Computed example of a mutant assay.
Amino acid sequence: MVRTVLGDVPPEELGVCDAHDHLFISTPALPGQELDDAEAALAELTAFAALGGGAVVQWTPWGMGPRAEELPRLSRQSGIHVISATGMHQAKHYDRGELERVRGRLAELFIRELTSAPVQAGMIKVAGAYHRLDEHARNVMAAAAEAHHATGAPIGVHLEAGTAALDTLDLLCRTHGVAPDRVILGHLTRFPDTRIHRQVAEAGAFLAFDGPSRAHQATDWRLLDSLAALAGAGHAHQLLLGADTVTATARSGADGPGMPFLLAGLRPRIERELGTDLACAIFTGNPARAFAVRWRRP
């Protein structure tokens, strides 16, 4: 089953999926750029639904304003399945006091949000540092692995500028025993090294690429090349795509492409240039498998 904010649903009910996005997010690292407008979030979901969208995965973790209590209403009113996240981002996104308060009990926190919170999460979000895994990342990933083993939840990884993918898989899979197909590596568009992409795909992980982004536009033009290279190497079943909207100006109702561009802009290009089968896999089949879990009670 896939754990949505309205309860567990069969994977085939997700439909067309934005596999990495944000409806709400706040961080001291981006002052004044918070996503905190519920009606703007509803408008974005509604626009995505109007183009045939069926599900959105919010990767906003604990402590960064995910506003989980708002998500069921937005899901009902838009008709979009919403999957939320627990987990923890890089240390810079938190007040030091917050980090101290939960130090040593992260796994317990993640498990509670996955299994007994009023609005339950359906995945665990973690994050690496630039070209490395710092002590904070290693501690959070260890807790995420413990929560995964207790519940079955998939682990989504913010790769800083798309880097440290191999180190991340080594830590989660070899050190902590997480199956590679339970790991979703995000932001690979931002470091379009096809050799590394091929290596992590061969290891068995899911690869999540971002849609065009005002904040990370330098490598947007490499997206289709990256997808084509991986599909050609036999990894079409591991590819995911998301808009990763992190600021209000990136939304379609403001100055950005937003969620709707995935279906109005990118999907037609993928169908035309790479084929409808690959488009269906990226938007429908692959997310259904990536976020489906045989949920366990800890």
Rank of each mutant, 00 (worst) to 15 (best):
E34F: 02
L133E: 06
L42M: 10
P287R: 05
G152Q: 06
T189S: 14
G65E: 01
D220A: 10
G52Q: 04
A215P: 01
R294Y: 04
L227A: 06
P260D: 01
R222V: 04
R3Y: 04
S26N: 11
G258Y: 02
I282S: 04
A91D: 08
V56C: 13
L51Q: 15
R105Q: 13
I282R: 12
Y130M: 08
Y94E: 08
Y94D: 00
R67C: 06
H93T: 06
I124A: 05
L51C: 11
H197G: 04
F209V: 03
E13C: 01
T189V: 12
L188R: 13
D167N: 08
G256A: 01
I270G: 07
A19C: 05
V178K: 10
C17A: 14
H216K: 14
A144P: 02
L42T: 15
P260G: 00
A254I: 13
G253F: 03
T276S: 15
N286A: 14
A137Y: 03
A129C: 03
H136F: 13
T86Q: 05
I184V: 15
G275M: 09
T247I: 11
A179T: 09
A121C: 10
W59R: 09
L278N: 01
E13G: 07
G258L: 12
A47R: 12
G52H: 13
H149Y: 11
C17S: 14
H136Q: 04
A229V: 06
T163S: 14
A165K: 10
A279C: 14
H149W: 13
P287Y: 09
G162V: 12
A264W: 02
G204T: 10
D95T: 04
R3K: 07
A29R: 10
E100N: 13
R269S: 00
D95A: 13
W62P: 03
D210I: 06
E100W: 05
A142I: 01
E100K: 13
G204Q: 00
L171C: 03
L30E: 00
M1T: 14
P31A: 15
L166Y: 07
T189C: 07
I25Y: 09
A68I: 00
M141W: 01
L262C: 09
P66V: 09
P298T: 08
L159M: 07
A161Y: 12
G54N: 11
D244C: 10
I184G: 00
S26V: 06
R294F: 07
G232C: 05
L14N: 12
R103W: 11
A55H: 07
D8G: 00
T189N: 09
R195H: 10
P118R: 13
G65K: 02
A179C: 04
